[in-house]
């Protein structure tokens, strides 16, 4: 009985996850995005464009990794809640700290121009 459970469970787990082709696509996409990031770094002079594009790409790569490679998309919703909650608190606290401590630094982007 237990043995069959192992089997069916493992199959469930496999069925629950995307196939290798999806992973391959994700890998291609992530690698492509990384190349684009480097191209942006070398080609664009406009600061706003550079920061904006890099931030957008970072977000896409982050979601792709966490959603597909760590299976968050296919896993229990409550796990997303756990990780998302922790990430939210970490991000807000750290963003506030940087904003308070580095106003004379990074966040005054217009100083570059």
């Amino acid at each position: 009985m237990s043995a069959t459970h192992v089997d069916s469970q493992a199959e469930d787990a496999a069925a629950n996850h995307p196939g290798d082709r999806v992973y391959f696509t994700m890998l291609g996409m992530l690698a492509g995005l990384t190349v684009i990031e480097v191209i942006i770094f070398y080609l664009t002079d406009s600061l706003v464009l550079r920061v904006g594009l890099l931030a957008a790409l970072l977000l896409v790569k982050f979601v792709a990794q966490i959603g597909w490679f760590t299976h968050l998309r296919y896993d229990d919703r409550r796990i997303t809640l756990v990780f998302g909650g922790c990430l939210f608190i970490a991000l807000s606290v750290m963003f506030a700290t940087v904003a308070m401590m580095a106003v004379d630094g990074f966040f005054l982007l217009n100083e570059y121009q």
Partner: peptide, 25 residues
């Protein structure tokens, strides 16, 4: 493991915040 990773978010968050504060200084 997921709670650990949630905890790691704060760990790396603190380090990244430190870096962002000092990166141009």
């Amino acid at each position: 493991m997921w709670w650990f990773l949630g905890s790691e978010c704060v760990l790396f968050g603190s380090l990244i915040a430190t870096f962002m504060i000092y990166r141009n200084r």
